Amino acid sequence: MKVSRNKIGKRRKPMKSSANTSEIARGDTVASNMDANNGFTFTEVNSVEASSMKVISCHFSADGKWLATAGHDKKAVLWYADGLKPKSTFEGHTSLITDVCFSPSMPYLATSSFDKTIRVWDAGNPRDSLHIFRGHSTCALSVDFHPNRNELICSCDGNGEIRYWSITDSNCAGVFKGGTSHIKFQPRLGRYLAAAEDNAVSILDVETQARQDLLQGHVKPIQFLCWDPSGEYIASVSEDAIRLWKLGSGGEGECIQELISNGCKFHSCVFHPANSSLLIIGCDQSLELWNTTENKSMTVPAHEGLIASLAVSTVTRLVASASHDKFVKLWI
């Protein structure tokens, strides 16, 4: 793995780490020890074959008690995070599910699908979806809940169309261009929406729907976005690179760090739930742990297929990985 040497600056407190990394231990539960001297470990604690087909999305509930997964079998499954035992299954989509997410404040679950629809479900009642939103002209690829407006969700499709939906009146609340593969609201305030648009990231003002900035620099299409919990930093992932951006008060972004692949295909990423200086990157069969403060990374064997999605719980500090190998795993 080749790591670029751009300066990070005084961004966050560094992770306790050193240049010496131990060999990766393989076993039933032990995945790696990133720094034997300072005791940082990243360990697999559970895994389950979550589907008979590819799993491509996962997300934790706000309290960390539930994990939702979804993928090619057209179903969303709710799991007890403690033990990875299935609780309920949500069925209704007529094609594969591209994204799944929990509301941060309500017992709701949202899914997007190749069938062009967005569905909102009552997490406690899997019988029927509460809402079915139609309007996308092609495959819906991503969906997200606003962090503090319970009635508002957002989705995007393969034609670059972004739609806001109101859960209150079951209507489309706005349509505009700017996102193709992945969208994520800024945590906490929700002032901005980050949208992957081919090989750039659009930063959109949620209220005015105006684009505040277009973050450019990726050569290949961006497949995944994640914010740090403060909503001040955002990471964007393309097959050959991951870029870390610092967002200004006016929504303008600056790339402060980049990790370049030497052949390993990047796909997903998430900030470590206990240390925001550590980015966890989902690749083809492995996880890449990138210490952005020290600009060092290491590889952890993880799955037998592409790691399509990653999720974290800041409550339990668990990390979930969902893969095309049909398995979902938990790490801590």
Rank of each mutant, 00 (worst) to 15 (best):
I242M: 10
I242P: 10
L244M: 07
W245S: 10
L247V: 12
G248W: 04
S249N: 14
S249M: 12
G250E: 10
G250N: 10
G251R: 11
C255A: 09
I256S: 07
Q257S: 14
L259P: 00
S261G: 11
S261E: 10
S261A: 09
N262I: 03
G263R: 00
G263Y: 00
G263L: 07
C264H: 09
K265D: 02
K265R: 15
H267M: 07
H267T: 09
H267N: 11
S268N: 05
C269I: 06
C269W: 02
C269S: 15
V270N: 08
F271E: 04
F271Q: 05
H272L: 01
P273E: 03
P273G: 02
P273T: 00
A274R: 13
N275G: 01
N275D: 15
N275C: 11
L278M: 11
L278C: 13
L278E: 15
I280R: 08
I281Y: 08
G282K: 02
G282T: 02
C283R: 02
D284H: 11
D284V: 02
L287G: 02
L287I: 03
E288C: 15
E288H: 10
L289K: 05
W290P: 07
N291A: 12
T293S: 12
T293Q: 09
E294L: 10
T299Q: 13
T299S: 14
T299L: 13
V300M: 00
P301L: 07
A302H: 04
A302V: 11
E304H: 14
G305Q: 01
L306Y: 07
L310E: 03
A311G: 11
V312N: 08
V312Q: 08
S313W: 03
T314D: 09
T314P: 03
T314N: 12
V315Q: 10
V315C: 00
V315G: 03
T316S: 15
R317G: 00
L318G: 04
V319F: 01
V319C: 05
A322R: 09
K326W: 01
K326R: 15
F327D: 03
V328I: 12
V328Q: 03
V328C: 02
K329Y: 04
K329I: 04
W331G: 00
I332S: 13
